[in-house]
């Protein structure tokens, strides 16, 4: 009879468990990727990554908040984004004084 020991059976049970786990991870990852490729085809590109951390996930530098304007629906004016909260505080209380 071929050598079958507690050692060899333990080893084979351990390998069964491990290969099952690996197959599970690989199957989920490949299926996920297949789905992404089928859904987004050509337009699918990975998020941009840069070590220095200067650029965002689209590869763009940080935009200055002061250069962005938000439209205020109450007074119909464009307000600089980094001053919008202060503007709203004044704008919304104006009529109640």
């Amino acid at each position: 009879m071929s050598q079958i020991t507690v050692e060899s059976v333990s080893q084979s049970i351990y390998e069964n468990l491990l290969t099952t786990l690996i197959q599970d991870i690989v199957s989920r990852t490949t299926t996920e990727e297949q789905l992404l490729r089928a859904r987004y085809n050509q337009s699918l590109s990975p998020y941009y990554y840069e070590k220095s951390g200067a650029l965002d996930i689209h590869g763009n530098p940080k935009q200055q908040d002061s250069s962005v304007y938000v439209h205020c629906d109450r007074c119909n004016r464009d307000v600089s984004a980094n001053r919008f909260a202060a503007h709203v505080e004044r704008c919304l209380t104006r009529g109640r004084r």
């Binding site: 491990l18 290969t19 690996i22 991870i25 690989v26 990852t29 490949t30 990727e33 297949q34 490729r37």
Partner: peptide, 14 residues
């Protein structure tokens, strides 16, 4: 994204 092909590469390393 072929399961069999990718598994053959990943399993021994994992």
């Amino acid at each position: 994204t072929n399961f069999t092909q990718i598994l053959a590469k990943v399993e021994p390393q994992a």
